[in-house]
Design a protein around this nucleic acid. Sequence first.
DNA 1: CGTAGTGTTGAGTCAAGTCAATGGTTGTGG
DNA 2: CCACAACCATTGACTTGACTCAACACTACG
Lengths: 246, 246
Amino acid sequence: MPTKHPLDLLVRSLALRSPLTASDRQAICDLPHVVQALDPASYLVREGEPPYRCGVLVTGFAYRQKITRTGARQIISLHIPGDAVDFQNIFLDVADHNVQLLTRAEVAFVPREALQQLVRDNDRIGTAVFVKSLIEGSIFREWVVNVGRRAARERIAHLLCELGARLDAMGLAEEYGYELPMTQEELGDAVGLTPVHVSRTLKDLSADGLIVRNKRSIAFPDWRRIREAGDFYERYLHLAPQHSAG
Amino acid sequence: MPTKHPLDLLVRSLALRSPLTASDRQAICDLPHVVQALDPASYLVREGEPPYRCGVLVTGFAYRQKITRTGARQIISLHIPGDAVDFQNIFLDVADHNVQLLTRAEVAFVPREALQQLVRDNDRIGTAVFVKSLIEGSIFREWVVNVGRRAARERIAHLLCELGARLDAMGLAEEYGYELPMTQEELGDAVGLTPVHVSRTLKDLSADGLIVRNKRSIAFPDWRRIREAGDFYERYLHLAPQHSAG
DNA sequence: CGTAGTGTTGAGTCAAGTCAATGGTTGTGG
DNA sequence: CCACAACCATTGACTTGACTCAACACTACG
């Protein structure tokens, strides 16, 4: 007897911004799916391959990634439980980037056609999926700004704030911080810095009392100050519901 | 007697990737709209404001932009004739970035509700708009990579290739190049560099015979070499049609 | 012509990168 | 339960790609 449906978090994530009725929620949970437990670094999507299914994070974290010719990796976004990692691919014929697991994770795979059909048949769900995709696009835009125009300290602070705000919106953060399941190399690839410089910058942030580190957990003693250090304004996350879209 | 409908280019842009019937095309052209001629730097969208209409570029160029706390500007994307600059906003309640004209331009403004209604009522058009939005998202992702992990020379070469490829797909490029309506400051803000360094890098690219400059026009004597210099692979532009999405 | 907006060039600086060594943590298997 | 291996984080010394500042040149346009 499942205490919790694997797609519940997806429903919660969609309902955060778009109104969904009880029957909409049921329809999402009724999507055919298989849940798999996968190891860190497992690929959910591979650049160049056609997407035939959509992975939904039930537990664990993932990231989007692209590799340049010289072998440098850029992490393009981070994904938390409840995120569907393939809304960006499901209406396109070929994946233009990779998605990998950051941690061990349980992933619910939904066949592409079933998801496309539901999006087409149900207006509210279709809008919710569209809205979620557009918000992901908004996050990509903010990352362009972060990586293009902010100094190292701001970049890292911004990333930490964003993750905190998103986890918090999903009810997945602790009181003052959260478990950050990333190495400094991964952090660097997310903000366009080398791991060495990430190490130094985190040290500075700690020294200034903006963050408190303990193993891989991050806490913010003063939310206002870290937001300021990261030039973080959460409007781009569109955490309030989109009433007029329903 | 109009020789050409203002929304024709939008139709062409959508039809590039998604199949549209003659009546779909007619339905798009029948959208209510007003065409305005506007000066460079005019705002089409302002961060923080609710989007009540969607601008479509009939002629001229535009860009998305965000300003950091320190006043630095990051250009997030460039838009060419046929692009609708508000697909990213139309289903969200508040704009999270600015859109401005790069050049003098004619813009067709479509009321938000009319566009939303058409997207909801017509499946093929809805899918086409969704696909176009997702491709814009793909371009944002590539920009994160460009600005995060490539050297100055590659960044600029990549941007020039992207614009060339997109203009070419819309039939708006010359044989070997195109008119680049950007100052070096704007170029710099698009790739995360200072105007001084853009000037030096363009000089290098010219010296190596990768580009030929004449006023604001750019030509590529050898497309293969400039692609290579920019680490440019156009898969992310999804220029081939998305057959299975229709 | 004068002026404002661009673009170019040189000289000096600095934030972040590179290279390399050391130290700490975690997990595993003998 | 310990020992080893693999991975990760930290630190120091040095380098460098891009930035800053500043002067000057070009161009378009009234």
